[in-house]
């Protein structure tokens, strides 16, 4: 099975794939984002307790989901890289770092903006917020590690190990609201259903998908530049760059 997948993960093929896919994906994502923003800001009704401010949920929640998913993805890439030594998974790991960092920043900033009018404070050292802040530091750390070693191979190995170990923070973020007394409320959407009214809920998955498309296009460009850094001098990639 490994051989069948490996055939599609040759670097020139990946490079060409993202060359085709990046712009349409970005376009779809942006269109979706603007439609969803319009729906969230003007069409949806105000919330009974939080009035208008709850609308920031449609940025806050997708960004939170992606900040955690991207980290899990990076840890998986690191694991695959360490076991199978596949270059592409190290490239994917590196390409996802900056993306995850941006999403974590969006979560923390939108959360602060949301916190002031509802809770009465921008920032409080509550378990959810602190563990998310640690996630931000982890991303910054990975970003710094990227350029801290002499050879690509050592860097990739260190990045993989750090990503795998740091993944422990993800369940802590997820369950922090259940394990401890926190100011942050519990999850609205669980396996047993959603406590967001259906009239408002439908925008959330649409927004999630739009975020996904935008993230995917940036991820693709990161992968392309990472491939150029590694193999820019090779003939095949060179031909692709010059058209």
């Amino acid at each position: 099975m490994y051989k069948y997948i490996a055939k599609y993960l040759l670097l020139p093929k990946v490079f060409r794939f993202f060359g085709v896919v990046v712009l349409p994906s970005l376009f779809t994502g942006l269109v979706g984002f603007f439609i969803c923003s319009y729906l969230a800001l003007f069409v949806l009704p105000a919330d009974a307790t939080q009035q208008e401010i709850y609308r920031i949920l449609f940025v806050h929640v997708p960004a939170a989901i992606f900040s955690e998913l991207i980290y899990i993805f990076m840890a998986c890439c690191g694991f695959i890289y360490l076991v199978w030594k596949t270059k592409i998974s190290a490239i994917m790991l590196r390409s996802a770092i900056s993306l995850g960092l941006v999403f974590t920043l969006i979560v923390l900033i939108s959360g602060a903006i949301w916190g002031k009018p509802t809770w009465g404070t921008y920032w409080v050292w509550d378990a959810r917020i602190t563990s998310t802040f640690i996630l931000l530091i982890q991303y910054i750390g990975l970003l710094a590690l990227r350029t801290s070693f002499n050879t690509m191979q050592t860097t990739d190995q260190i990045l993989s190990i750090v990503a795998i170990v740091g993944a422990i923070n993800i369940p802590i973020i997820k369950f922090s609201v259940n394990w401890w007394n926190t100011l942050h409320q519990n999850a609205s959407i669980t396996f047993s259903g959603s406590s967001i009214d259906a009239e408002m809920l439908y925008v959330l998955p649409l927004m999630l998908i739009s975020f996904g498309f935008i993230a995917f296009s940036i991820f693709g460009r990161n992968i392309q530049s990472e491939i150029i850094i590694r193999q820019g001098s090779s003939k095949k990639i060179g031909e692709l760059i010059n058209g």
Binding site: D47, T49, N186, E199, M200
Partner: peptide, 8 residues
């Protein structure tokens, strides 16, 4: 606040 959201 709690995790419930419903229209006014």
């Amino acid at each position: 606040h709690d995790e419930n959201y419903m229209p006014v």
